[in-house]
């Protein structure tokens, strides 16, 4: 099985994710083209600006190939803007914003407020207490049947999974703690059939 993890590197915090994966000995490659996508067995979609990434997914010819790979069961992990790209419903996004609709959740863009409201706080999660960093973060406002809540803060979901798709509204790559990344790697190693 191909265990090479790709980090979508169109825009955003892709370097921090690669560094985090390297800290647990997982090799990753930056993905900017369909050819690079072909070489990976799993994909991480970082935080950044979801509208910028949507544009670049189209202009780089990556949108359809990624959608096909996700449909084929490729494990994928989206953080913050990456989670928005994976959600089945985007609230307060741009009207032309497309998503992969890979996980049955509704997310509201920037629902935690502007940068002045960005915060760090402890998350109760299945990997244990985790120090979460929330930057102009989106909110998961609805969780569909079949979506597992793996982490929450004040009873609000912030880390969710459906099949091979993992999504977080926070930034595990900024906490010097690779447990959430390790969890994603374990999904990749025990990939579910779809």
């Amino acid at each position: 099985m191909n265990m090479l993890v790709g980090v979508l590197a169109l825009q955003g915090a892709f370097v921090a994710h690669s560094d985090c994966l390297a800290s647990i000995g997982v090799q990753s490659v930056e993905v900017r083209t369909p050819e690079q996508l072909d070489s990976v067995g799993a994909l991480l979609m970082p935080g950044g600006e979801s509208s910028t990434m949507s544009q670049l997914l189209e202009s780089s010819g990556l949108f359809d190939p990624i959608a096909a790979r996700i449909a084929d069961g490729m494990p994928v992990f989206g953080t913050c803007a990456g989670m928005i790209l994976l959600a089945s419903e985007i609230l307060d996004g741009r009207s032309d914003q497309r998503s992969f609709a890979a996980i049955d959740i509704s997310v509201r863009r920037n629902a935690f407020g502007r940068q002045v409201d960005s915060f760090e706080a402890t998350i109760n999660s299945s990997v244990g207490d985790f120090h979460g960093v929330f930057i102009r973060a989106p909110r998961i406002e609805r969780v569909g049947d079949g979506v597992e809540v793996l982490g929450s803060i004040n009873d609000e979901p912030v880390l969710v999974r459906q099949g091979n798709v993992l999504a977080a509204s926070f930034h595990p790559e900024l906490s010097n703690d690779a447990r959430v990344h390790e969890y994603f790697v374990s999904i990749t190693a025990n990939r579910k059939k779809v």
Binding site: A9, L10, Q11, G12, A13, F14, V15, A16, G47, G48, E49, T52, C80, A81, Q115, S118, F119, E120, V133, F134, I135, R136, H171, L174
Partner: peptide, 15 residues
């Protein structure tokens, strides 16, 4: 916090 401040700078990378 510095982490939250630098975090937004991280999000702007490659843009």
């Amino acid at each position: 916090t510095q982490r939250v401040k630098r975090g937004l700078a991280e999000m702007l990378k490659g843009g």
